[in-house]
Design a protein around this nucleic acid. Structure first.
Lengths: 199, 199
DNA sequence: TCCGGTTGCCAACACTCGTTGGCCAACGTC
DNA sequence: GACGTTGGCCAACGAGTGTTGGCAACCGGA
């Protein structure tokens, strides 16, 4: 509650930056790791604080409570490419490639998936990412915009399923596939979900 | 440890069945529900015992510890159909249809998925179900048996992704799809993953 | 030099968890 | 009727949780 955000626009470079900014971001970094590997419940405030080499009470002072920490740690920007600017037939391939890059870039998406499965706040956040960032892209490519949500849902199912088996459950066959193989297999699927006439 | 299994072949019908058998199975039933809706950590022994209207210590006496309860509650038999007995071109459709039935039949698969994401024992169990029940079926259909595991992995990604978005995360578009629509969309995908020449 | 805010740690609270051991009542068998 | 077995509850332990308040050290501006 009494977290003070009352600083006016820090100079980004040179100036004597407050130490707290470093610890704040250090907390976020280790929190992301913990949420990604342990899920919400097992990612305890104490464990996160220990990783960040500070006292658990600091986490509370900076982020209010555990929910606040999670909200701050896991904010997803898929930075989706504009599929409408591509040749229509390349949409599927562009989508898989982009997603694979996002998943391997950092652990935020893994954290979100692990938490979303057991924690309702996490699930809602996943849903908002889907609604605000994936569906609009589908709307730009789909033949009938009214079907955009359903088609985006099918794409999400395929992409999240791959992420689940590969990055979370670590099924050996899913882990063993090379990126190009995944793209080659999934691109036609997504292409069909996005642009094929509904069956 | 001192759980006594030392009874000799009960008469299955009519006879005065031990009360304990009823409570044992009642525990399993509510445990499945709890694991399915709450995941491993939040499905506490106390909550399960309360649902079953017994004392938490009874759960311990019957199943040793929480791990043992989970192992007993979540045992999955996919009872896969013999895809080799079907026309080759129907494999994909048969697979989706069968899976949708399994997921909606009871909550065991939901429980397994929710637990597998955050609990390592659950993840290993998922892996063994995949390896022992799905891969063999793929092996019977795939052109090259050496690729069976990889192709089964792709199918698992698609099927688990659908289950994730529809039964766990409850994305509205995934929930809104009718069963026939899902079959129509996914069957060609699985068919390709199973039988198409590798790209 | 002083002084107010910032940064941090420590100790504790209230709670829940899995787990244990003892006690009690009912029951079937001799 | 005595007795061991079985099914069940109660009370407690020890560990771990999120969370809180107080207190010491530091630092920058007056």
């Amino acid at each position: 509650m009494n977290v003070s955000h009352s600083r006016s626009a820090e100079p980004a470079s040179g100036g004597a930056r407050r130490r707290s900014e470093d610890t704040r971001s250090a907390i976020l970094a280790v929190a992301r790791e913990r949420f990604a590997t342990d899920g919400y419940d097992r990612a305890t405030i104490r464990a996160i604080a220990k990783d960040a080499r500070i006292d658990p009470s600091m986490v509370m002072r900076y982020y209010g409570n555990k929910e606040g920490l999670f909200a701050a740690a896991v904010s997803v920007d898929l930075s989706m490419p504009d599929l409408a600017a591509l040749p229509r037939a390349d949409a599927g391939q562009a989508l898989v490639t982009h997603f694979l890059g996002m998943w391997e870039e950092n652990e935020v998406l893994t954290a979100l998936l692990r938490v979303g499965v057991t924690n309702s706040a996490g699930a809602e956040r996943m849903q908002s990412v889907f609604r605000d960032q994936l569906v609009p892209v589908a709307r730009a490519v789909c033949p009938d915009p009214e079907q955009a949500a359903a088609r985006a849902g099918l794409c999400a199912a395929q992409l999240l399923g791959l992420a689940l088996t590969r990055y979370v459950l670590r099924f050996p066959p899913a882990v063993g596939l090379a990126r190009e193989e995944i793209v080659a297999w999934l691109a036609p699927t997504l292409q069909r979900y996005l642009t094929a006439p509904s069956p």
